[in-house]
Computed example of a mutant assay.
Amino acid sequence: MGFSSSKSDISLFTRFTTTDTLFLLIYVDDILVTGNSKNLVQDFIQRLSYVFALKDLGTETQGLRLYSSSSYFVVGFSDSNWATDLDDRKSTSSYCIYVGRNLISWSSKKQKVVSRSSTEVEYRSVAAALANII
Rank of each mutant, 00 (worst) to 15 (best):
M1S: 13
G2I: 03
G2V: 05
S4C: 10
S5H: 11
S6P: 03
D9H: 10
L12V: 12
F13K: 04
F13H: 08
T14A: 07
T14I: 11
T14E: 06
R15C: 13
R15F: 09
F16T: 14
F16Y: 14
T17K: 10
T18S: 11
T18I: 04
T19M: 07
T21M: 11
T21N: 06
T21G: 06
L22A: 05
L22W: 01
F23C: 06
F23Q: 02
L24C: 10
I26D: 04
D30I: 08
I31W: 06
L32Q: 05
T34W: 00
G35D: 00
G35V: 00
N36R: 06
N36V: 01
S37K: 14
N39A: 15
N39S: 15
L40P: 03
V41F: 01
V41K: 01
V41I: 13
Q42N: 14
D43G: 02
D43N: 13
D43E: 13
F44D: 02
I45S: 08
Q46A: 12
R47P: 02
R47N: 13
S49K: 07
S49F: 06
Y50W: 09
V51Q: 13
V51N: 09
V51P: 03
L54Y: 07
G58M: 04
E60V: 11
T61C: 09
R65K: 12
L66E: 00
S68Q: 14
S69A: 05
Y72V: 05
F73N: 15
V74L: 15
V75M: 13
G76L: 02
G76I: 00
S78H: 07
S80I: 03
S80Q: 05
N81Y: 06
A83T: 07
T84Y: 10
D85Y: 12
D88C: 08
D88H: 06
R89M: 09
S91E: 10
S91H: 10
T92P: 04
S93P: 12
S93M: 15
S93T: 15
Y95Q: 02
Y95A: 03
C96G: 06
C96T: 12
L103A: 00
I104D: 00
I104S: 01
S105W: 00
S105D: 02
S105L: 02
W106G: 02
S107V: 07
S108Y: 07
K109E: 11
K109S: 13
V113P: 02
S118Q: 03
T119S: 08
T119G: 01
E120M: 01
R124W: 07
V126K: 12
V126D: 04
A127E: 13
A128R: 14
L130S: 15
N132V: 13
N132P: 03
I133D: 03
I134A: 14
